[in-house]
Design a protein around this nucleic acid. Sequence first.
DNA 1: ACCTGAACACCGTTCAAGT
DNA 2: ACCTGAACACCGTTCAAGT
Lengths: 206, 206
Amino acid sequence: MSRTVLTREQVLQAADDLVRQHGPDALTMRGLAARLGTAVTSIYWHVGNRESLLDALVERAVEEIGAIQPAGRTPATRIVSVARRLRGELRARPHLIAMVHERGLTERVFLPAQRALVREAHTAGLRGARAAEAVRAVQFQVVGFVLVECARELAPAEPRERPRKTASARKDPALARALARPADPERLFTASMRALVKSLLAQGNA
Amino acid sequence: MSRTVLTREQVLQAADDLVRQHGPDALTMRGLAARLGTAVTSIYWHVGNRESLLDALVERAVEEIGAIQPAGRTPATRIVSVARRLRGELRARPHLIAMVHERGLTERVFLPAQRALVREAHTAGLRGARAAEAVRAVQFQVVGFVLVECARELAPAEPRERPRKTASARKDPALARALARPADPERLFTASMRALVKSLLAQGNA
DNA sequence: ACCTGAACACCGTTCAAGT
DNA sequence: ACCTGAACACCGTTCAAGT
């Protein structure tokens, strides 16, 4: 697998592959060394230690995501489009996002998109602290949603409890059935994003 | 520290204390044994292994949270009250919540509160799949928000980047200042929760 | 500048043996 | 039924030594 000399970039790439596929727990210094055909200690020379290696991967992921262009005609649809695109980017690397999350870097992932959101909030008539609050609400909503969503996918299949017949269930069987089915994240995300944005932007016309 | 014989409950309690204060990484089987004044292998007899010990702690936490009574007059305020109370419960045990999250058990935490939410959605006029969607949107929003929030607190102080002067910043300095300040989670949570619920319930009067 | 093996301290877990 | 020490396989990391 290895060629010529070992470079820091090679180490990062191999680690990235491993983490993306099997998560950070699968990344052991010894295993990585074996994969690269070198001694464990060589890796230390190139990346310092395991922790800073993971940091570098997180850094990479954050940069990869970068800025996102809004699409659509109204500010509301444009904000929702940014949110959906961002969700897509995050979902594409669930393990990395979990790591970004653990490191408390969630806000950083959002910085590139923030400017776009600010612009839309502004054209929707929001100003000052209220605009800032709206932008942040959207950010938290997106990241939070994706975290919940990824956790569900990465976790070993949540044991579904069979729904009990409650009073409300008998009154509205369609509701009970809908809650018994697993949620459709794509649909739920868009719906709740639209709902949130609608309310937030409505404050601008007051 | 130890008395008489070792019980499973004692093991769980000691582990719980440790995890609540210093997080799951601080829980080592050997360290726990030392704390309890027994051999490591005794712990294995009582709880199986580390993984199932952590599972038991998560189970405990989920049960502790339990049901939550809504407060307020309108369905909207009652739903928001449930959300806020739930946020409080989750925030009180950030490490445990992170573990619940990793295990994909986020939905389970919400089951006790779900019935209350369903009732409120119903009295607000929502029915069937639409009501289910509203309930789920609230759930995801709460859990997602708390996850982001806890991550920020547990992580070793996010390095704040100094804001750059962008075009929008010059147009609306109050907004730029607001975004430069760290977010006030309490306030942001309530605001975005209200916004979301308002939109969701508005669909019931259509 | 880059790579190496040996060694250290620490894990979770198993197992045969005790009472 | 409950507890024990010894042992195994695996970690991350350091360090002195090589080229």
